[in-house]
Nucleic acid binder design. Sequence first.
RNA 1: UCCUCGAUAGCUCAAUCGGUAGAGCGAGCGGCUGUUAACCGCUAGGUUCUAGGUUCGAGUCCUAGUCGAGGAGCCA
Length: 465
Amino acid sequence: MSRTRVVDALKTGQAGQTVDVRGWVRTRRDSKQAFSFVELNDGSCLANLQIVIDAAVPGYADAIKHVTTGASIAIEGEIKDSPAKGQRIEVHAKLLRVLGEADPLKYPLQKKGHSMEFLREIAHLRPRTNTFGAVTRVRNAASAAIHQFFQSRGFVYIQSPVITTSDCEGAGQMFQVTTLDMHKLAASGKPVNFELDFFAKPASLTVSGQLEAEIFATSVGDCYTFGPTFRAENSNTTRHLAEFWMVEPEMPFYELTDNMALAESFIKSVIGDVLKNCEADMAFFNERIDEKHELLSTLQNILDHEFIRLPYTEAVELLRNSGQKFEYQVDWGSDLQSEHERFLTEQHFKQPVILFDYPRTLKPFYMRCNDDGKTVRAMDVLVPRVGEIIGGSQREERLDVLLERMQECHLDPATYWWYVDLRRYGTVPHSGFGLGFERLIQLVTGLGNIRDCIPFPRVPKSADF
RNA sequence: UCCUCGAUAGCUCAAUCGGUAGAGCGAGCGGCUGUUAACCGCUAGGUUCUAGGUUCGAGUCCUAGUCGAGGAGCCA
């Protein structure tokens, strides 16, 4: 007999069927003389399967002692309609095997709730909780939805390199990659000779796959990357990770307005898919994670309305005339503070906002310059709860302007020779954006801290597991 | 990196003016019960984050550090 997953047993199981179910014990409630109730979870869904084990099961008296929270068991039994409220069906065990015990004195997970901080310290066990089981399934569903969105539109999935020797876009501090012996180097007191290093030059972990994606956008067409990126910034916030996953589509012949439209339908599509495919998990987040129980309505609101499109210059005007008191003053030419962004998306519009046409001085060299000479075709998508979830732009496709901009940003075109080549040979208008995957998970799950949106968070001073 | 707060039982926390370290939950045992975040009783469980210092006496005050949380900056 093959194993039945709990999700299938609960969904389609009918009284009279014999099943083999296996998983981990969440709780056990005893009726001393008669039988025990066991809540079995195998991770296939949020809900547990209730197992009834009575004294007639071979070895009951001995085995039941080891059926404790966290233990793994295998059950052969018969599905019956449950006489009590709380579940449609239950399994009456005929055979019980304890596969792996979990010493109740030592097993760290209790029946009752734990703080998120504590669970981070036991990241190897936290997927066994309701919350992290749900996060894991939602993260999976969102990944699938992302590929589905792009694949159904003919986008090509590109694997951009994790190790790079180009200081891409200066998007942030980079983690160095080396095989040089640091102890020897430090002891020798001599300067580092990178010619002796593995790649014969300084190498780092990537901060973005965008520049590589542009190569493929200008060859195979619409494409996207979806992979890990690394920032060695000393950021200690609820919205930053040193290692995070980023989705970066890049499209030839797209102007900024096309880029915005794609970003909007992308976010809506993924949220819609997750709501549809993870109903129970999403209901759980709405009930148990979001204190106000507004998660589902917030997400539905995002689906139901068109994103606001607001030029940076108008946003500055709006903020200045809002009557709202801000800690930081709003000036044209300086970046909006998160309090300003939050005001726009959470209080003023109460829905996602796409800000665009930023001052060129605030943005990197590759963004396309507008004719006004002051702004570039940049866009940021702001969402309630999370803030900036997408950053993107139309790329500068004109060789002369690009070179001028690189000079302005004190970048050496020789370092970016291959990137410049894309403008030298058959250049086309093109656009793209980057979406922080964990921030999307934050938005969808309602979790307050991004460290709970990735299985094993890497942040300053912490990279356990 | 900066600002604020915090670290006490397995977990979540309390401990008044500097004077014998407690509770709830969890766990063990017993009872009760088609139970379901079950319920009732009993029991065990402590290097009060680390290193110094002040004091007759420090969980409590001082100094330094480590780690955590929230906010800010940077960004996705």
